[in-house]
Design a protein around this nucleic acid. Structure first.
Lengths: 177, 177
DNA sequence: TATTGTTATACTCTATAACTATA
DNA sequence: TATAGTTATAGAGTATAACAATA
């Protein structure tokens, strides 16, 4: 499902420049004829929200290119750093990831030596997840990249107060809507 | 790519209740043990933005269930209503949809008799897109559903001023970031 | 040559059912 | 029985290459 497209593929993850919706020139007319009327679309929160989200993810990817981490991978490492010793179900559920889909994701991170799976001694069904030293170093670097390159640009664009307000509204929608 | 999952499939489109990230109870502890620390994640705009977007799309789908329109389909019909007589490339490009992916989408809408493709007399390569009467009636009903059920709830949650400010910030990110 | 619509294709994300090994 | 991790699979969304018809 989508309002429209554009995202960055994981394979092309190096740093891709994304195709995006046509932006009108100042005259409101494009090369060949009259510009299209966006109508109610520009007042529809879901529409602009989706577009903004794609932009932000794309920028996140660019900023994180040196570490080759997707937003999802970043969120997993961050959660593991803060919550060592949790099992797959706990981490996946917290992030809204289906357990089956989490398996391949962990395979990838584990094969890059960023985390380890250990059978729990107390419950041998579950895997205790722990960042490796490399994983801890990576998430530390990643957080710096996000803060200095990504979030800093966002705050610069919006202003610190608006940025803060925006965070609050998004959280409200995410939790109360 | 994702921060985490949860969305509504088009097949299940009737009205689905979505699996979502665990919400903590007021104590900050869940059933089995300590709640997970979200850490920097709750301050990361991309993260909360994505979560909010999923919530909003899910609600959009529920509100639009009587008409069985996805956000993407809604945006196409809306654009066609405002801009009759455009060709596929123009509509697709404006919405950020790849032309190849637009074909199946139009097939679906055309088979539901919501729009028509006509070969342009002036340029026989291109298809002129027009809403049918049913298409116009449908988008009219859809706009009412969105306004009264979907956007109204959002405005109620945020307050009209905040909602307006949010729209502005999202547009800014979508166009200037 | 270039463009429009199209087909074919591939990769990602998401969801569900069902298996296994444990409990 | 129920749960954790897993496999298999299917449906969407998205991206690119290449073709036929037309310009």
């Amino acid at each position: 499902m989508k309002f429209f497209g554009s995202s960055v593929s994981k394979t092309t993850l190096k740093t891709a420049s994304l195709p995006q919706a046509k932006t009108l020139d100042p005259t409101g007319y494009d090369e060949e004829g009259a510009a299209l009327q966006m109508g109610e679309l520009s007042e529809l929160l879901g529409y602009v929200l989706k577009r903004a989200q794609l932009k932000i993810f794309d920028d996140f990817l660019r900023c994180m290119a040196p570490l080759q981490l997707t937003p999802a991978q970043f969120s997993v490492l961050l959660l593991l750093d803060r919550n060592p010793g949790r099992n797959q179900t706990e981490i996946a559920t917290t992030l809204g990831i289906q357990r089956p889909n989490f398996v391949a994701m962990l395979d990838g991170l584990e094969s890059r030596d960023l985390l380890t799976r250990m059978r729990s001694p107390s419950d041998r069904r579950s895997h205790v997840l722990m960042l490796t030293d490399k994983g801890r170093a990576t998430i530390a670097r990643a957080k710096k990249l996000v803060a200095t390159r990504h979030e800093a640009r966002l705050i610069e664009l919006l202003g610190p107060d608006e940025h803060k307000a925006l965070l609050g509204m998004m959280t409200k929608i995410a939790t109360e809507f």
